[in-house]
Design a protein around this nucleic acid. Sequence first.
DNA 1: GGGTCTTCTCAGGCGGCGCTCATCTGGTCC
DNA 2: GGACCAGATGAGCGCCGCCTGAGAAGACCC
Lengths: 226, 226
Amino acid sequence: MSDATRILVVDDDPKIRTVVRRGLAYEGYRVVEAASGEEGLEKAREHLPDLVILDVMMPGIDGLEVTRRLRAARGEVAILMLTARDEIKDRVEGLETGADDYLVKPFNFEELLARVRALLRRHATPAGEILRFADLEFDVDAREAHRSGRQIELTTTEYNLLLLFMRHPRKVLTRDVIMEHVWAYDFEGESNVLEVYVRYLRGKLEAAGEARLLHTVRGAGYVLKE
Amino acid sequence: MSDATRILVVDDDPKIRTVVRRGLAYEGYRVVEAASGEEGLEKAREHLPDLVILDVMMPGIDGLEVTRRLRAARGEVAILMLTARDEIKDRVEGLETGADDYLVKPFNFEELLARVRALLRRHATPAGEILRFADLEFDVDAREAHRSGRQIELTTTEYNLLLLFMRHPRKVLTRDVIMEHVWAYDFEGESNVLEVYVRYLRGKLEAAGEARLLHTVRGAGYVLKE
DNA sequence: GGGTCTTCTCAGGCGGCGCTCATCTGGTCC
DNA sequence: GGACCAGATGAGCGCCGCCTGAGAAGACCC
């Protein structure tokens, strides 16, 4: 814990910074923010992050230039570039300039987290993760689950949702937290997607009449527990 | 907690109180002020704040003494001490007396806010916290309690009410304090919701014939004790 | 273009939960 | 012992939070 992985988030949009910071902090990373390219370079020098998440489009020094300077200064840092949907040409340029990966906005948090983990793993140690809870097995790499010998296929959203619960068993996750993690960061307004997907998941997890694992906590959210 | 975080500001300088109060209120905290050590202790008893911001130098009961008494009163309250620049020796004494952090005056508000956030984060709910009292366990994350091996499910209001008692064991909580914390009422209208929910809680906590933990203090309020 | 899979919206339904109310109980004071 | 009042109790009601089934829209594949 004392030597947690440090991640620097550079984006001029405070909303994105906040969502990313909160999410990553929740996952146990130490997060530093910067609102501009200049500040980003400064914070990078100051905190020596393991990974930099970097928006391409920023006033002043933009993401590409920051990448160039980071590479010139210190080669080992991993760089994840964020690019708006219609800036796809930037992808190529971004990767050529020295970014290790890129992600198109808007993205949902689990996607970001997956990239972050992948990048950090590449820089560190690999491992085929299998999460277990009660009689449920969850193979992160294979993207499938097993219960009472049965193989359970999951769609992407179901996978993200179940992954979140498997990472935080016995903990009540509020609707807000779940929405922020599994659905797009800029999701606004009322929707009952969450209920619907909880229903899908329950349907698959309890297909053979097994006991309920995903419980409703009225007025709060949901928990994974026996 | 169900309602906003409460912060008590104790300083004999009205200017500082005003600045701090406005700023914190703007950030969404509920702020209570006190102009002296005596008043501070009184307000603390009355409002059960999560954090106390406390000036060291005050006529009458000073900050150090207030800290001592707050700690003696079994409060798990976080304390942030304010000290003038040339009272640096007070820092040491302040921390030894039981303050959780200190801040040198003059300070800018962002500095204060950063400390406040850090303290609340550290102090509030370290993930996986389990509160215990007698043979009762209260799992904050899972939103459930256990007694004599039995799992006790709680509704949101029951949870908020029990949480309040678990945070202040053996302390008599008046009806007003409880109403203010759990229902956010200004106790205007008459209602016996509190009695009803005390009954619900007792029902669940003593379902297997266990001894009473939630006691009535006639004319005052309720206590959690053996 | 047709078929399939996935994501998400929408309308309707149901029951849990928060709360009120009327009545009962017991402690306290004279 | 009687009167009074704070709190306890049981019953019940209405809302809204969540569940459910159906289907539209879009992506992908052949």
